[in-house]
Amino acid sequence: MSRPGRDDAPDRLYTLTQGRSRSGPGNPFDLVTLVVAECEPVPGMQSEHTAILRMTEAPTAVVEIAAELRLPVSITKILLADLHAAGRVSARHPRTAAVPDPETLEQVLVGLRNL
């Protein structure tokens, strides 16, 4: 546990999300969802939203966003859900169904090592 008094931002987590701790039923995000920004940040946005939009100019996983923001994943998901509901980010789910057979993977591995 961190030392007392070293919690280094005065913002409490519930003030970031207006007191919400759940991201709602239609939340498309899980830990590995890739998030892509759909627009530039505009002035007057919450600073976390701005940071997320800057970060997700290239596709970024939810867990990575959470780590960069130094926020719990649940809180990050709520923020992302807000942006998603506003159409400012879109979510791309990794296509887990497309995992090919081990042979292909092996070839990929060989190719990677040859890089």
Partner: peptide, 22 residues
Amino acid sequence: AAPSATPTRTGTLSSTPVPIEA
């Protein structure tokens, strides 16, 4: 205050204390 750890981009560095709004 913004806990953004993306200071690599020169554009964001100056605007790190992003204006806030509810």
